[in-house]
Simulated scan of single mutants.
Amino acid sequence: MTRATLLWSLFAVQALCSVYFLLDIVLDFWPNSSFFLAESDLVELLVTVALIGGLAFTTFELRSMLNRQSKLEDQMKVASGAFGEVLEARFQSWSLTQAERDVAILAIKGFAIAEIAKIRDTKQGTIKAQCASIYRKAGVSGRLQLLSLFVDDLLADNLVATPTHQAREMDVS
């Protein structure tokens, strides 16, 4: 059973339990009403146990989701810092000028030639020439290949060490 199926099943059980208790309350105020399940202490006990179990499981799932979210946020911080380091290292190895670095960053961010020219307050021809120089120095044919160099670098590294990975590193040291 998948986690989603389990959570939806738990939701359905909790909804049924809530309906049972609402029905029980309504029947308590309804004159001369009798519903055999509403009078059963055993049914009320089972419904209460189901709700408490659902509450416990929901608490566990919430903690688990918050931990996963925290780990993902940590990975994003590391990836962001690592991406900056990867950019700088590549730019140095390609011997890009400062202007080429600025254009390369804007190109990687997805800005069009016209937008880069406007941001840098220069002509589109200049930006095209700088892009051509960047691609030549990087050994790629265009923007997508340039971007893929950085993505490949980031995906090749384990940016956030897992506890097992950290333990192995400590054993080696």
Rank of each mutant, 00 (worst) to 15 (best):
A4L: 15
A4C: 04
S40D: 11
L144R: 13
L106S: 09
D24R: 15
V13D: 02
L96H: 08
L147I: 13
F11G: 06
T58E: 00
V172T: 12
G139R: 05
L66M: 11
F91I: 03
A112Q: 15
L55H: 06
I52L: 15
D121R: 15
T126W: 04
L155Y: 07
R136T: 13
S33R: 07
Q98S: 13
E73K: 13
V78E: 14
A50I: 04
M170V: 10
L66H: 03
A4K: 14
C131E: 15
A12K: 07
V86D: 08
L16F: 12
A104K: 03
A50W: 06
S33C: 04
G84E: 09
F11S: 09
E39Q: 14
N158Q: 12
K128N: 13
L62Y: 14
A56T: 12
D28N: 09
I119P: 00
A38Q: 02
L6W: 06
A12M: 08
T58I: 00
F11L: 14
P163F: 09
C131G: 01
V103D: 12
I127P: 02
A104N: 02
A15I: 08
T122I: 06
A89M: 07
A112K: 15
R68W: 06
L23E: 12
S173C: 06
S80D: 07
N158R: 11
A117N: 06
T2A: 14
Q166D: 10
Q75D: 06
G54E: 03
D121T: 09
F111S: 09
F150T: 04
G139V: 05
L16N: 07
T97P: 01
P163N: 10
Q92V: 09
T97F: 00
T5D: 13
M1R: 07
I108L: 15
R143Y: 04
L154I: 10
F150D: 02
C17F: 01
M65I: 05
L7A: 12
L144P: 00
I134T: 09
L144T: 13
F83D: 00
R136D: 15
W94Q: 05
F91L: 02
S70C: 04
Q166V: 02
V49S: 03
E88G: 02
F36N: 04
A15K: 08
L37M: 12
K109V: 01
L159H: 11
L72W: 05
S70I: 07
K71D: 07
S80V: 01
Q75N: 08
Q75G: 03
V151G: 00
T126C: 03
L37K: 01
S93G: 01
A132G: 09
N67A: 15
Q166T: 10
R101Q: 15
S9R: 11
A12C: 06
Q130A: 10
S93P: 00
